[in-house]
Amino acid sequence: MTGLGRRGVLSLGAAVVLAACTSTTKGADSGGEVRTDVKPLERRFPALGPLSRAHWLGTALGTDSRGSVPGPTDVRVVGTARLRAGAVAALTAAPHRSFQPGTPSRVPDELVEFMPAGARWVCSDTFDRDMTGERYSGAFLLDPGTDTVYFDTTNPRVSAGSGP
């Protein structure tokens, strides 16, 4: 880098930082690609059983336009998936879970069209703790009418024994 001098190096560094900030903000504003593969979800949420009709996003946190920086590895995994017929009824039948009516919050724009129409969501703090094992944060809402789950998690871990 001979010939650039101190000012040249500083200018180049400033340009790199500005380009990085610009591309990060643009990526966050343009939204993520909706995924439909179920295997990553089944490995993270095995208690839900086999899943189908999944629509979800995996988004790195800290890349939004507000400039928040939760951490370099924080990933929000949010979306919907269909459980096998009758699975939601079986999950909500456990009296110790005390399911109550709920409403999904912060649904990404990319997922709104995949939310079941007329859903009657229920949620339970106990069920959330059972699902996360208290190793990561997450909320799980269930719709008994469509056997659909809405999940909104941060850094969901692959369950032990579910493969790589």
Rank of each mutant, 00 (worst) to 15 (best):
V122Y: 06
A28M: 01
S65V: 12
L57S: 06
T103S: 08
S137N: 08
G3S: 11
C123H: 05
R53D: 15
V16N: 02
L142F: 09
S23E: 06
V38N: 02
V75P: 03
V112N: 05
D152L: 06
S11K: 13
L41D: 08
E113G: 05
Q100I: 13
N155G: 04
G13D: 03
A19H: 12
G31I: 00
R35L: 06
C123L: 02
A119Q: 03
E134D: 15
T80N: 07
A94G: 03
G161D: 09
G8M: 14
G13V: 14
G145A: 14
D128K: 07
F45A: 07
S11R: 15
H55T: 03
P116L: 10
R76P: 05
M1A: 11
T73I: 03
A119D: 07
A90F: 06
T146D: 05
A117Y: 04
V34E: 02
V107D: 10
A20W: 04
S137E: 08
W121V: 03
G118K: 04
G163A: 09
H96I: 00
S124I: 10
S30R: 14
S52Q: 11
D37Q: 03
T22P: 01
G102N: 13
A15D: 00
F99V: 13
C21N: 03
R84Q: 15
T92K: 02
A60P: 00
D143P: 06
G79A: 10
C21M: 13
V122M: 13
R66C: 00
S162T: 15
T92V: 14
D64L: 07
W56K: 05
P50V: 13
D143E: 04
L48Y: 07
R84E: 14
F45R: 12
L10C: 13
L142I: 09
R44I: 06
D64C: 09
Y136T: 08
D125I: 06
T126K: 14
T25K: 00
R157G: 07
W121G: 01
V78K: 03
L12M: 02
L141R: 12
L48W: 07
R66M: 02
P50F: 04
H96C: 05
G102K: 12
A20L: 15
A139V: 13
P156T: 06
P70W: 12
V34N: 02
C21A: 14
